[in-house]
Amino acid sequence: MIGEISVNVGGDEVRKACLLLVAVAMSAMTWWGAGNVTAEPQLPRVTQYSENVGTFGDHDFCHGAFNIGMVAPKGKRGVVRITLTSFGFTGNGSGWARDPKCRFFALVNTTAGFGKNEYFPVAFGRRPGERVTIESHPGSGPKAVTVSTSSSDRRSDIQSFGATMYTIVP
């Protein structure tokens, strides 16, 4: 067997090298962030399922869905501006005909410390494209931002699956 070379590298050494590489990369991203903020770019993010959330509201079986957008406001470090854009909501009965607004709370949970819950009132009607803008302050660095909904009369009742986005906040 001419020219045969055998290299014996243990699994522990490879695992340690990979962990060290990940630690160095995360440290670099945390230290430098995403650079200076000069515009409001969409934050790069990874989601598990979707950036769309379906929910229901406070009266007459009102229900619908909305999309989640996230930007870094110009000149504000550690802040995420979340925009909820409605696909249109609908309901049943005479109550919906009198009051065609579906109300609920948007629950924003960020990994600032051990998790920070913020509730924001939302009201969407029939027309698609209605927007609600929320500012959250999770701080700079790698973060997980979850948006879900709760009922308008009891904030503790979660009523949608929600969407979790992993991002780097400048």
Rank of each mutant, 00 (worst) to 15 (best):
L107R: 15
S152C: 10
G129H: 01
G64F: 02
V7K: 12
G93Y: 03
E130L: 13
R103I: 07
E40N: 07
N8T: 13
G162V: 00
R155M: 15
G113S: 05
R45S: 04
H137D: 09
T167V: 03
G69P: 13
M165A: 03
S140E: 12
G125N: 09
Y49I: 09
G129V: 09
R131I: 10
G57H: 00
A25V: 13
R81W: 01
E130D: 15
P128Y: 04
P128F: 03
G113I: 05
F89R: 05
S50I: 04
K143Y: 07
G162H: 12
D153C: 09
I82R: 10
K76W: 08
G115F: 07
I68S: 11
N36F: 08
S160H: 07
R126C: 11
P100I: 10
T30L: 06
G64L: 02
Y166Q: 08
E130A: 03
S140K: 05
L84V: 06
S150I: 07
Q48N: 15
G139W: 05
N117C: 13
L107W: 14
G95I: 00
G3E: 13
D99H: 14
D99P: 12
A39D: 06
K74L: 08
S86G: 07
G64P: 04
V14Y: 11
A28K: 04
D58I: 00
T146G: 06
Q42W: 00
V24R: 14
V147Q: 06
G75I: 09
P73Q: 15
P41E: 08
P121E: 13
I158R: 12
T83S: 12
D157A: 11
V79N: 01
A123R: 01
T30N: 02
M26A: 11
G162S: 02
A39W: 01
D58W: 13
F66Y: 10
R15F: 11
A97P: 08
V79H: 05
V145E: 07
M26L: 15
G95F: 12
L84P: 07
M1E: 10
R98C: 03
V9A: 14
D153Y: 09
S6G: 12
F66E: 00
I2F: 15
A39Q: 07
M26D: 06
A25Q: 01
P100D: 12
A72W: 02
L21R: 14
Q159R: 11
F105A: 09
H63M: 12
I168Y: 00
F105M: 12
P100T: 05
S150H: 05
R45D: 00
M165P: 00
L21V: 10
P142W: 01
T83E: 07
P121Y: 09
Q48Y: 12
V79C: 01
L84I: 02
D99R: 07
R77I: 07
I82K: 03
G69Y: 03
L84N: 10
I158M: 06
G11H: 14
K74R: 14
T55M: 05
V147I: 02
C102W: 00
G64D: 08
T149P: 08
K101L: 12
M1R: 05
G95N: 01
V53K: 14
R127V: 15
N92V: 14
N92T: 11
K76S: 11
G141H: 04
V71W: 00
T55I: 08
Y166T: 02
G129E: 00
